[in-house]
Design a protein around this nucleic acid. Sequence first.
DNA 1: AATGAAAGCGGACCACGGTCCGTTTCGACC
DNA 2: GGTCGAAACGGACCGTGGTCCGCTTTCATT
Lengths: 198, 198
Amino acid sequence: MSKDLPLLATAPVVRRDAARNREALLQAAAELIEACGVDDLTTEAVAARAGVGKGTVFRRFGSREGLMAALLNHREEEWQASVISGPPPLGPGAPPMERLLAFGTSRLRHHREQAALIEAAGSTWGENYAVLGFVSLHVRTLLSQLGVRGDLAYLATALVAPLGVPVLRQQIEHGGMSEEQVVAGWTDLARRVVRGAD
Amino acid sequence: MSKDLPLLATAPVVRRDAARNREALLQAAAELIEACGVDDLTTEAVAARAGVGKGTVFRRFGSREGLMAALLNHREEEWQASVISGPPPLGPGAPPMERLLAFGTSRLRHHREQAALIEAAGSTWGENYAVLGFVSLHVRTLLSQLGVRGDLAYLATALVAPLGVPVLRQQIEHGGMSEEQVVAGWTDLARRVVRGAD
DNA sequence: AATGAAAGCGGACCACGGTCCGTTTCGACC
DNA sequence: GGTCGAAACGGACCGTGGTCCGCTTTCATT
């Protein structure tokens, strides 16, 4: 047989040692975070625990932030799965408005739980296409189902923005709001947006 | 005369050399940013150009981010002044709704202009009490004047959140929106919030 | 199994943010 | 002007993120 055409169906072909090291690094990072917290995690320690050189960390993840983002991805996928195929009202099956409100609550909790990691991932996470895209597309879809008119792409991002980690921290840790108040506030916000302006 | 009572009217009494160095550092930083951009600015270079030791930078500003925040403060104060006492519709004198929309547009532009510095200031800026407080209080006041009912503190932060630098960058540089679209979107959002849910 | 080349690896090395502490400067009080 | 304590200074020093390049491993091909 002739060789595969180079430009089509390019198999990524990850080398086995590379894959092994990747997993080892992720696990080492998770364990070290468990032990000493995100802030005190050094790339050298991760590399040492995984039994590889420091260069490998950067080859695999690009940066410390990239490593954090990779750790987050796992949790994020679980969350996305519960939106796509989990039980209602977060998952499909409930009326759109209930799904939207469930989304807000769930996303808020998710952000609160992963706050340390999200902050450590910094812009690598914030610019993560897949995540941002999924979240705002989901909201956009729900708004559409609710018959909302206007620039749905904008409204979606505007609804997602107040669920960001820095905003939540400001509100809860600095502004003295309880998590329940924030949930209630966001619910109110969502209702106003859906009700529309005309 | 007896000594001032220690607990009342505590004069900060800034030493003259300290004040001079502070100014020299701010100017040096501004000049260097002009020359080589925010990202390539090193604290050592700033110190050298100001003719002081590196330790002084940290003594005065706490961190590199603190230095950035101090630079921002100047611009921020100008902006706040234009809200407090500038010409309408941003300043006082216009109807509340017009002021609110002018606020959104102006704040968005301000964030876009100062984006590099704001990102470089990082959490030092994000946690800046004075700034966040002023902005959300202003919006809250306008909402109140508009007769909006509900958790005004929450709604204010929710209106401010989509004007954050990362959100704007996502929308404009990644999502293909124009600045005009974003302004239009925010205006729509504000109208929906003000219209209310009941 | 042998071969060869591309991908991966490791750890010395570098740059920069941040700390520390002995020395210098300021300015309040006499 | 002299004295003195507090505040500020400077720059050597350290830790950590990130780079670089010569060596090793993998694996497709034969």
